[in-house]
């Protein structure tokens, strides 16, 4: 059985999907690739926008999500963060 993803892992996965998509992705493909229910996905996106990990861009009536510097920094630091949590059993 696959292990249930934690909050930090889900955030990493969402940011990673955006990053691997040339830092530009629409709402629906991001929802599909994130493997979350619509309700949970909306919650995470709202949190990421509010905390400044991602931003919304408009281009010819299309809306895209892209990473901010903080979002890239989270991706860069993610391994250290999870190691820290694992090391101290938090």
């Amino acid at each position: 059985m696959e292990k249930k993803r934690g909050r930090l892992e889900i955030i990493y996965d969402i940011l990673d999907v955006i990053n691997k998509n040339q830092n530009r992705i629409k709402y629906t493909p991001l929802l599909r690739k994130s493997n979350l229910s619509t309700k949970r996905f909306s919650g995470y996106v709202a949190e990421l926008l509010e905390k400044g990990f991602i931003k919304e861009l408009e281009n010819k009536n299309d809306k895209y999500f892209c990473l901010t510097d903080k979002g890239f920094y989270y991706l860069e630091k993610y391994k250290n963060i999870t190691s820290f949590i694992e090391d101290f059993g938090l």
């Binding site: 930090l8 903080k70 989270y74 250290n80 963060i81 820290f84």
Partner: peptide
């Protein structure tokens, strides 16, 4: 030293630690 990773994650375990 843990301030930055707490600000980045808002993780409760890190907060209580």
């Amino acid at each position: 030293k843990t301030k930055e990773i707490y600000n980045l994650t808002a993780d409760k375990g890190i907060k209580y630690f």
